[in-house]
């Protein structure tokens, strides 16, 4: 864009947002595991609090008996319902995230200590939130940092609240409806004429070498199919040749 020193890559698709440049420097098994964990993180980051709310306040029957009892025991004496608790913690988390971005590194650490230790520990001891909710929100926050694309992380932060509202009204049915809506939305998006969910739906197994997993480097000789490239062969950077010669 004008005046900006950065370049934009188009068209962008959902799987591309899950790729990070480090993937290609790692062994393919490690890179694949990391990449799968990113997809999982996308889901936990957007729906984990909603899942917690729906299972605890609608379907405790889903949990194993001992787990249900121990969650119930930790929530004894907490004055708020799970949704209020979640929104309080979510709000605190957003504040902490924004605060630590703008501050210099030295003070940023203080913020994280205040946030993590003081608010987390003290809120639990004061009985405002239950310890399990702190775990859930912390897990959610960590998941949103896993996503390589910061904007995608922001998007998951935004859809978290509607999912929580759906979950508190309709339980797991609400979450399913929300997911269906999200899926429809993602499938209907187009970026420069290319479907956003391309190569996940409809499947193009040839492109899966670099979608959910990152296949070994010798499989990467072809360009992604969904772009309809005129030359389907990738530029030969010597990697493949060396690989074959050795």
């Amino acid at each position: 864009m004008d005046g900006s020193p950065e370049a934009l890559i188009v068209p962008v698709t959902f799987p591309i947002l899950m790729q990070a440049s480090d993937d290609y420097f790692e062994n393919w098994i490690i890179a694949s595991v990391i990449r799968i964990s990113r997809y999982v993180a996308f889901f936990t980051s957007s729906i984990l609090p909603a899942l917690y709310i729906s299972t605890t306040s609608f379907h405790p029957g889903m949990l194993p008996t001992t787990l249900a009892l121990s969650i119930a025991a930790t929530r004894m004496g907490v004055p708020f319902p799970a949704i209020v608790e979640a929104i309080i913690m979510e709000f605190v988390l957003e504040l902490l995230q924004e605060a630590s971005i703008r501050l210099p590194k030295v003070i940023g650490e203080t913020v994280s200590i205040v946030g993590g230790l003081v608010i987390g520990q003290a809120a639990v001891e004061a009985g405002i939130v239950s310890p399990i909710m702190v775990i859930i929100i912390a897990f959610t926050a960590v998941s949103s940092f896993v996503l390589p694309n910061y904007s995608l992380g922001l998007a998951t932060r935004v859809i978290r609240i509607p999912f929580m509202i759906l979950a508190v009204t309709f339980g797991s049915f609400g979450i399913s409806v929300g997911l269906l809506w999200l899926l429809t939305y993602l499938c209907s998006l187009k970026s420069f004429g290319v479907r956003y969910m391309q190569s996940l739906s409809p499947y193009r197994f040839k492109d899966w070498k670099d979608t959910i997993i990152r296949a070994p480097v010798q499989f990467h000789s072809k360009r992604p199919e969904f772009l309809n490239p005129e030359d389907s062969q990738r530029q030969n950077l010597g990697i493949r040749r060396n690989f074959n010669e050795n």
């Binding site: 306040s57 008996t65 929530r75 319902p81 508190v168 339980g171």
Partner: peptide, 20 residues
Amino acid sequence: ALFLTGCWDRIDIESRAYIL
């Protein structure tokens, strides 16, 4: 309207009596 009237079935996990 749907959501404002909602929360019909919500019962907090600690206010159920788990019959064992």
